[in-house]
Amino acid sequence: MQNRDKKYWQKNLQYLGILLSVWFVVSYGCGILWVDALDSFRLGGFKLGFWFAQQGSIYVFVILIFVYVWLMNRLDKKYEVDEA
């Protein structure tokens, strides 16, 4: 790989690291590990931990993928590796 391509790949890995950390925190963190602690807060009729486990994590998953799509399309263009 050329230098420029290596940089593209490093940047890609950096994005993955950030997005997957969010992925881990909302599902395994808020929905499982800290669920009881979060349940002492409320979101309308939901206990907060329960909401993350059954609703919130799924919304965040969807948003994460679209953020990734946006970031990568921009990155592809910047490093001129996008498809014709």
Partner: peptide, 26 residues
């Protein structure tokens, strides 16, 4: 299943959707 498992049913909700993040990114 969820209506009988309550909060424990979340394993299916998160498990069967969170995999798409891995699929899309990795």
């Amino acid at each position: 299943l969820i209506s009988f498992l309550g909060r424990d049913g979340s394993v299916y909700l998160m498990g069967w959707t969170g995999g798409y993040v891995l699929l899309a990114l990795l």
